[in-house]
Design a protein around this nucleic acid. Structure first.
Length: 432
RNA sequence: GGAGAGAUGGCAGAGUCCGGUUUAAUGCACCUGACUUGAAAUCAGGCGUGGUUUUGCGACCACCGGGGGUUCGAAUCCCUCUCUCUCCGCCA
């Protein structure tokens, strides 16, 4: 959520900036009118409340002195009705305002290139060389089929439906090894503290990170067993529970930066993705991810984004997977982000780099929604922190990249050295 | 699943029966100042969050788990939801 002040004192500039960067149209006239109503109604409501408080107090005092209070009561008779009406009106206006403001995306950092869509993203760097194969390569689905059919989409369909998979045998083991490897790397070498978190979260939590109110259709919602059970939703990323750890909390400045890593499944409805990436493991309703979250002081967040992205890159480097780092343009960035790097891994069968990590600095956008704050040493007012998150990495897609990039002519798959300890020292998965 | 008890400011903890100078006592923590070479101790003062309004000082409003109600007035009474704890039952 943007600072409400931007909609009051800098409405025109804010609208222009949102249009320029996000192609987001703010109804300036409507907002301006609502804001004027809000102001008038709020002043009126509060002065009525003050009046009510004062009269209630004098009633109390008169009564304490044993005086007759019927005159006093008569004089405040219609106050309640007036107040109630004013409150109701104010409430309406504020709800309308809030619902508009809660749906406005973050304003990108000035360093982010302007652009309409992914075609105008900026490649920052490349690491590694896509391998030259001297045989006809298979995609990961066929590679896995050669490995005792360890990736079974028919079984996924049978058990759950389209975009679900069952992994078995050495593929399942590889999948587990990858997440363990990533989590160990980040906790042991990059200073993240490991967390195990709920996979189902409530609506406040989803609002905090920005999934609600606008993106509810991207989630799976779970109806509790009882009629009025709390509405819960499956997390689309561990960013949601991890960042919300500090919702409605005030950290000491010395506690920052806070760094959390968690390995969780992620659930996405993929509404609107029909027909995209239908083959293979690239786009599933359920996938595992090791997520990194960092909470910082405002002045530290841009550096922290570089550091955090570096941590995700380190996974790819250790796994010897060629990738490129892309700075997303304003039009391609997520709703709450002010700056995002995507890491894209080389997928040989597609001869393309595909997203495997997205690292974002959300600025104070999420922190304002969830009132995640910190107090500077000596300062009295708490201040919003900045929140960052990044995949380190998406496990399923890493599995895909590994199978494809390290496939051998005989159908086996070699294992990068860094990962071998997690596979009982095996240097390859053998076909058969 | 059954029975009971609770939820108060960063923490602890009074107030709730019997609604009214309680915009919440007190203690701890924290901040400022005094004393001290410095620190500790002591003393004095300050010290919640959000919001509105104001050039500023300030004034005002809301918040005692969430929501609703009764009332001139609610931390206090009523309804409801959520959560926590204790005991019993069941259980990975």
């Amino acid at each position: 959520m943007l600072d409400a002040k931007l909609f009051r004192s800098e409405l025109e500039q804010t609208a222009a900036r949102l249009k320029q960067t996000r192609n987001y149209s703010l109804d300036v006239a409507q907002l301006d009118q609502l804001e004027q109503q809000r102001k008038a109604l709020q002043v009126r409501t509060e002065s009525l409340q003050a009046e009510r408080n004062a009269s209630a107090k004098s009633v109390g005092q008169a009564k304490a002195r044993g005086e007759d209070i019927s005159d006093l009561l008569a004089s405040v008779n219609d106050l309640g009705d007036q107040l109630e009406a004013a409150k109701a009106e104010l409430n309406d206006v504020q709800e309308t305002l809030h619902s508009i403001i809660a749906g406005v995306p973050n304003i990108p950092d000035s360093g982010v290139p302007l652009g309409a869509d992914e075609n105008e993203n900026q490649e920052i760097s490349r690491w590694g060389q896509p391998r030259q194969f001297d045989f006809v390569i298979k995609d990961h689905v066929d590679v896995a089929q050669g490995l005792q059919n360890g990736m079974n989409f028919d079984q996924g369909v049978k058990l759950a439906g389209a975009r679900f998979v069952v992994l078995q045998g050495q593929i399942a083991r590889l999948h587990r090894a990858l997440s363990q490897f990533m989590l160990d790397l980040h906790t042991e070498q990059h200073g993240y503290s490991e967390a195990y978190v709920p996979y189902l979260v409530n609506q406040d939590t989803l609002f905090g990170t920005g999934q609600l109110p606008k993106f509810g259709e991207d989630l799976f919602h779970v109806q509790g067993a009882t009629e009025n059970a709390t509405a819960l939703s499956l997390i689309p990323t561990a960013e949601v529970p991890l960042t919300n750890l500090w919702r409605d909390e005030i950290a000491d400045e010395a506690q920052l930066p806070l760094q959390y890593a968690a390995h969780t499944p992620c659930f996405r409805s993929e509404a609107g993705s029909h027909g995209r990436d239908t083959r293979g493991l690239i786009r599933q309703h359920q996938f595992d991810k090791v997520e990194l979250v960092c909470l910082t002081r405002p002045e530290d967040s841009m550096n922290a984004l570089e550091t955090l992205t570096g941590h995700a890159e380190r996974v790819l480097q250790l796994l010897e997977l060629p990738y490129r780092k892309v700075l997303l343009c304003t039009g391609d960035m997520g709703f709450g982000s002010c700056k995002t790097y995507d890491l894209e891994v080389w997928i040989p069968s597609q001869e393309k780099y595909r997203e495997i990590s997205s690292c974002s600095n959300m600025g104070d956008f999420q922190a304002r929604r969830m009132q995640a704050r910190f107090r500077r040493k000596g300062a009295n007012k708490p201040e919003l922190m900045h929140t960052l998150n990044g995949s380190g990495l998406a496990v399923g897609r890493t599995l895909v990249a590994l199978l494809e990039n390290f496939q051998q002519a005989d159908g086996s798959v070699s294992i990068p050295a860094a990962l071998q300890p997690y596979l009982a020292g095996k240097a390859q998965l053998s076909a058969g």
